[in-house]
Nucleic acid binder design. Structure first.
Lengths: 311, 311
DNA sequence: GCCCGGCCACAACCGGCGGTTGTATCCCTA
DNA sequence: TAGGGATACAACCGCCGGTTGTGGCCGGGC
């Protein structure tokens, strides 16, 4: 289906006649007639009843019309999403199910009128480059990499500390625990596929391993979180970490357990990063929303690498 | 923009390479390459970074992808709206702002998963013909015309009595009244443009005029309810009737007044009409919803023509 | 009652869009 | 270094979709 044809249909329906629609679209009446005929052939129904005084919608045409309008609106939104200047606010998040996504969902609920696009860059290096180039407007991340402070033109504000939880299958040795200490995790295999090597996310787990002597396998390709959950559910010796704010679509019958980690609770600190000179009006709205809804940071009993919360 | 091109973009994004997308779409790799290049030219941005091992989305491509998917979903819904068999439930209402529309909005809120299409046929003759032919699944209307009972294969159930209210501008003689009796309306001009001559709606007002000696001008073209409200607001000698369940988008600064009518209150009885043999599953859901939410009919102090509520 | 005007459909024609085949180039891997 | 797999570029061509020209239908006005 061609959107020009749909546009022609809507114009003809609004005008009530092909001739006027043709003038509006700057084509001949015959072209409109052929387009409508082609659309009717494709759909297999008659959309207009032709009269000597114009064309009026059939019942099928009436039913199709609002869908056609919605189709054109969707096309406009799609084009706007990549239009340079005055495009939707474009925000990078760490993962599709992490705290950043949750914050953006909350923002969208609070401001449904603001057009949003959420993308996922792989590490903070690219995120910072994209922010500086204007390709994205903001990013939810730990603020830096070890030894690599943020450039001066990037601003940041700490938004949320996401506590890590242990995710195990029903047959795991720790499956019955109400909570586990970090010390108890020593000796257990923890599997974190899909972490991009060299990213600040990988550095976080490197620090966690170095500090508490855990065994984290960050290798292996990422086949998606469904595959991860499947494997964890079926493998008694395997567990994984999950953000405490992740809202899982819980697969039925897996018997998965989420177990809080304590003494200390490892938290992943999320900050909002943006360019000092970014003029996007929705960016200010987002910052105000986050400031208004942010929970206080209770550092007592939690752990995070120093470089991740610097500034 | 061509939807085949958008489909190609989504396929390439999912596959991560043009070659596989081409195989999926049963075209050559070169065709996919040209389509993507054309889409990028149209949008003015690069959507993929080409590598010797495939093609991965740019940031713009990532932002565009969900919009592209939504565009294709909208196209599917549009096609489904006219697909013979298993199409959305198609319901006819009297007007876009009357009680029927309100009931359908309530039904949609209660069952958002059910696909709906609302159309507006002009009179009950056509509605009954459309119901019998299967072009629509149900209709909200007064059940019949005077002297023309419903055919045997059409079933109906009374759903809602909508009280008429008087709508006046601020300078109208009755503008200050908390309520008016039907007798008080005698001598005032009441303007009802857009009523289809010969329809059961027109017959209703004919009966109202004959019974109570009102002056109703049902003539003149219908320039839309906005124009109607404008005229009523500015013309002291003119009023109109409006369904009491109409939820107006109240134009600011017009000073319009809605005044209940009493002694008796004219009500427009809405029934749901459908074909006895219509197998659409959503039709049963709609009937159950209406039965569960229907208000009782309090006939005391109201008036409606006998033919409109027969059966 | 007839004619004219407005609107839509059909036919013929034609240019360009979008497909295919063929080929060059790049990069990773063995 | 050779080969495989990926994309881009070039040449070719059929057909889709536009235009012009024309005919039919119906209603309103003279």
């Amino acid at each position: 289906m061609d959107l020009d044809t749909v546009r022609t249909f809507v114009a003809a329906a609004d005008a009530g006649q092909f001739q006027e629609a043709a003038a509006e679209l700057a084509v001949t009446q015959q072209a409109v007639s052929k387009r409508i005929a082609a659309l009717e052939r494709d759909l297999g129904v008659r959309l207009f009843t032709r009269t000597p005084r114009g064309a009026e919608l059939t019942i099928d045409g009436q039913a199709f019309l609002p869908h056609a309008r919605e189709l054109l609106r969707a096309a406009d939104r799609a084009v706007a999403s990549v239009r340079a200047g005055s495009r939707p606010l474009r925000v990078d998040v760490l993962s599709s199910r992490g705290a950043g996504s949750g914050l953006m969902r909350g923002f969208h609920r609070a401001h449904p009128e603001i057009e949003l696009d959420v993308v996922m860059l792989l590490d903070i290096e690219r995120a910072v480059a994209a922010i500086r180039s204007g390709a994205i407007d903001a990013s939810f991340r730990a603020v830096a990499m070890p030894g690599r402070p943020l450039p001066e033109d990037i601003e940041s504000v700490r938004v949320l500390d996401e506590p890590l939880q242990l995710l195990t299958g029903p047959a795991h040795a720790l499956a019955g625990a109400r909570s586990v200490t970090v010390a108890q995790l020593a000796g257990h295999r923890i599997w974190m596929p899909g972490i991009v090597p060299g990213s600040e996310w990988a550095a976080y787990y490197d620090d966690l391993v170095a500090e508490f002597g855990l065994t984290i396998e960050a290798t292996g390709p990422n086949f998606g979180s469904d595959a991860l959950l499947d494997t964890v559910a079926d493998t008694p010796a395997l567990a994984t970490f999950m953000g405490g704010h992740t809202r899982l679509v819980w697969p039925a019958g897996h018997g998965l357990r989420r177990i809080p980690v304590t003494d200390p609770t490892p938290v992943y600190p999320h900050s909002l990063l943006w360019h000092r000179a970014n003029p996007h009006p929705a960016l200010a709205t987002l910052r105000a929303h986050l400031a208004a809804t942010a929970a206080g940071h209770d550092a007592a009993g939690t752990w995070a690498p120093g470089w991740a919360i610097a500034r």
